[in-house]
Amino acid sequence: MQRRGRIVRTLLSVYYAYMVEYRAELLLWVLSGTFPLILMGIWAQASESGLLTFQSEEFVRYFLAVFIVRQFTVVWVIWEFEREVLEGKLSAYLLQPIDPVWRHFFGHIAERFARLPFAFILIALFFWLYPQALWVPSPVGLGLGLAAIALAFSLRFLMQYTFALCAFWTERASAIEQFWFLFYLFLSGMIAPLEMFPDAVREAVLWTPFPYLIYFPASLLVGLPVDPWRGLFTMLGWGAFFFLVNRWLWRRGLRQYSGMGA
């Protein structure tokens, strides 16, 4: 246990230092997540017509929450893992007495902390420009929302890492992620709160993992009515499924792997 704690601390501090080194790049990544802010404008404008069930402020808050959730659930493990497999760098990591996944996982976590200041500055700037939208989430909503963000990040990481393992068999595993990303983009609530979807579509989508990656945490943050238990169990269910597939692929993949030095 003590050894584990030490490993975690070391990995976190190493990757934090690494990420802070690339601050400028990080800022650009933060800025490249503007998609929700664009849709915020259109939906806010659309709500002026009075034909929608949401008020303009509700849309603004929702999409700001989407922006925040996006910032903290960004995952890129598949591109790194793919490169490691293709270039044979994985071999060196396999020699270490720790599963290579932790290196990626804590790299992502450390990046969150390095990203935090930028995200806060942007949010402050936003409320300064648009004070009407200012809201304070209820303590329960905030707590649940943060927990949901953590879960959403873990689930997204797990899913992407599972796809990444396909790199043992194919050269462009990232293509799978790119395809999957389309579903994520359109069904996760990034383009609109799920309340705007036709009922049948919404009910179907709620069984997939996608809305729990964005819509669910964002709704908790802004106080839209969602069922926290359903969210929790759906995420755990999909998480368990991907975990099993992941471990199976990992074992098969290592046998398949013939990178340099393996």
Binding site: L28, S32, G33
Partner: peptide
């Protein structure tokens, strides 16, 4: 990722400009 920032902003072109505030 500078070009990613640009690409992100270009997404706005999906909709006619009249749709925006």
């Amino acid at each position: 990722n500078v070009t990613e920032v640009l690409r992100g902003l270009l997404e706005a072109g999906r909709f006619p400009i009249a749709a925006y505030p």
